Simulated scan of single mutants.
Amino acid sequence: MPKLNKICVFCGSSDGNDQKITDMAISLGTLFARENITLVYGAAKIGVMGTLAKSVLEGNGNVIGVIPGFLKKKEVVHLGLTKLITTKNMHERKLKMHELCDGFIALPGGIGTLEELFEMLTWLQLGLHTKPIGLLNCNGFYNDLLQLLETMVRKGFVSMENYELLQVDNTVSGLLQKMTDFKAPNIPNWLNEDRT
């Protein structure tokens, strides 16, 4: 896997109530700035999203924000980013984030974070991209989700191969190493261009 020069991070537009999550967002942003990794994210200056962007910018790193026009009225948009891209809708936002990055990380967040994570994971499962996807399991935040995925494997709804597509770690450095080492599987034989 080539160097991860740009990583898209999905995370909450709320702060939550666990200081360890805020601290981990700061640690991730600090590492991005230090390692010259550009952050691609949802362009808000509030919540975990804002904390992450602020930490990258304070380390003189680069931050690209991508936001649909209608959310500019509802979210507090960060106007101090390296680059701000406005899209027509949510679908275009995810396509643009995918286009811009070399990999994805999910920090703790809400329903939107899960939706973004699982769409990118589905695309990887279908062979529509080969980028690594990491889950930063801060302070056990995603333990229940991981248990659900294990249940899906046991019940025959998710293959072990697809379960293992998601790189999981509870440390920033450990997750980045797993993502760097990631090798995407071959595209499934039953898929072809007419069906995707």
Rank of each mutant, 00 (worst) to 15 (best):
L31S: 05
L39V: 12
G59K: 14
A53F: 01
N60C: 07
S13C: 12
G50L: 12
L39Q: 09
L52G: 04
A44R: 09
I37D: 08
T38D: 13
I67N: 01
T51V: 08
T51R: 02
L28F: 01
N17D: 06
N36F: 04
G69I: 05
N60D: 09
L4T: 06
K73H: 13
P68E: 11
V40N: 06
V76N: 10
G65Q: 14
K73I: 03
G69A: 15
I67W: 00
T51I: 08
Q19T: 00
R34E: 12
D23V: 00
K6V: 12
K74D: 05
I37W: 01
K20T: 14
G16S: 09
G65D: 07
Y41W: 10
I21T: 03
C8N: 10
S13Y: 07
V48G: 00
D18A: 00
G47H: 00
E75S: 11
A25K: 06
N36H: 12
N17E: 00
S55I: 03
V66R: 03
K45S: 13
G12N: 08
N36M: 09
I26A: 11
V48M: 13
L28A: 12
A53P: 01
I46V: 08
S55C: 03
V76F: 01
L31W: 11
K3R: 11
K3V: 10
V63E: 04
K54M: 06
C8V: 12
L71A: 07
C11Y: 13
N36G: 08
I26H: 08
P2A: 14
V63I: 02
P68C: 07
E35I: 01
